[in-house]
Design a protein around this nucleic acid. Structure first.
Lengths: 210, 210
DNA sequence: AAACCCAGTTTCCGATAGTGAATTCCGATG
DNA sequence: CATCGGAATTCACTATCGGAAACTGGGTTT
């Protein structure tokens, strides 16, 4: 859960991930979008400033458009690149995944300071990672270093009281029902301050952000 | 909160959103990535199969690379397009945003069936939207149609008991502490079934997913 | 200082993307 | 069936991209 602090981390590339080029039927996608809007090549030509002939060739994979052409497309049709490159969500990954976690039946993940219980861990490819945490730590000193991970985190106190330490702010006292949202690459650490150990519901964004 | 059911919705384009082309300093980005990895143009040439000269020209915006060239880049350097097009997060938007919401002090948003309380609504550009909901509905019939919105949703029962109706599953009974994660474009509806009105913590992914 | 090396740039030319005009395609109409 | 009209494709030409090689600038060696 502790991530590298290196400034260039986001730029440097981990070697060797996916060896092959994705097929990327760009022309096909363009045609889908055009037809879905009931546009003719002429319409699209007006909107984008690209010639009808060019558009036709792109749709039929007869040429590989220049990047400027792609820009004209995305700005003219008012779409963004992801939309052009990937199948529309509704086709590929829609529809009704579901993952129930009954109270206390998440996947336990104990550490010295926190006892995490991962919720909804049956589901892969989530855009949020929810878990319930019992905060065992009683003193800030029990943390060897800041907890830190890319993305954003939301948490709400379910039971007890905590002190939220963070890198750029004064410690904050949070009681049951209080909630907070923060950029989780800012160092943070939770400490129980009530009678019993505090219980916290957290939701994080996943590693890469999408 | 109720979204269109239209199959083509994801393809059809809402007219006029951002009128201008984003600058998209592609060459600049490429150079950043190359330097961050301490690669020479020769190195990148070997990895991607593009000539040194070509790479130089791309970096200096002297040519607009063909889309096939871009593909060679992303596969050779093992990055993905979003990475090539957008500044790395760590530079642009990092660092320590925070938004505290004390119990009961979120932004109220009542509907006939639900009473929503938006949490952390000071913060724009979130990747998650948390809110607490009091479920007033007592019968499924009180919903005129399915609640439905793009993205994913996580929810946990804080108080009371609910029945979760959903488009593709049998109704599910959820008690305090139970949680569920689901694709929220699947129609869904919550009904209180306990003595008191149920209270639910929900977190949704935002509109576009990024 | 001349010779050399290395990374990056520029030049030149063949290949190919982009354009307007001409052609083909196809459903609707008389 | 001929033909008309709009839409898509093909054609012929120009602009531009992509690659090999020559050039430039800075540092090191002899």
């Amino acid at each position: 859960m502790t991530a590298s602090n290196d400034q260039d981390a986001a730029l440097r590339i981990a070697s060797g991930r996916k060896p092959f080029v994705e097929p990327l039927r760009l022309g096909e996608r363009l045609k889908e979008i055009r037809l879905a809007n009931e546009w003719t090549l002429g319409d699209v030509s007006e909107r984008t400033g690209l010639a009808r002939s060019t558009l036709s060739k792109i749709e039929n994979d007869q040429i590989s458009p220049t990047f400027t052409a792609v820009q004209k497309l995305i700005s003219g049709l008012d779409i963004d690149l992801p939309q052009l490159l990937t199948q529309p969500r509704t086709k590929t990954r829609t529809m009704g995944r579901r993952d129930l976690t009954r109270r206390g039946e998440g996947q336990q993940h104990p550490t010295p300071t926190y006892e995490h219980e991962l919720l909804s861990c049956e589901l892969a490819q989530k855009r949020m990672i929810p878990f319930k945490t019992i905060v065992r730590a009683r003193r800030f000193e029990e943390f060897s270093e800041w907890v830190r991970h890319d993305g954003e985190e939301f948490l709400m106190i379910l039971e007890g009281e905590i002190q939220l330490f963070s890198e750029f702010y004064e410690p904050l006292h949070l009681a049951r029902g209080d909630s907070i949202y923060f950029d989780s690459d800012m160092g943070h650490a939770l400490v129980s301050v009530g009678e019993e150990d505090a219980v916290v519901l957290s939701v994080c964004t996943p590693r890469d952000g999408h």
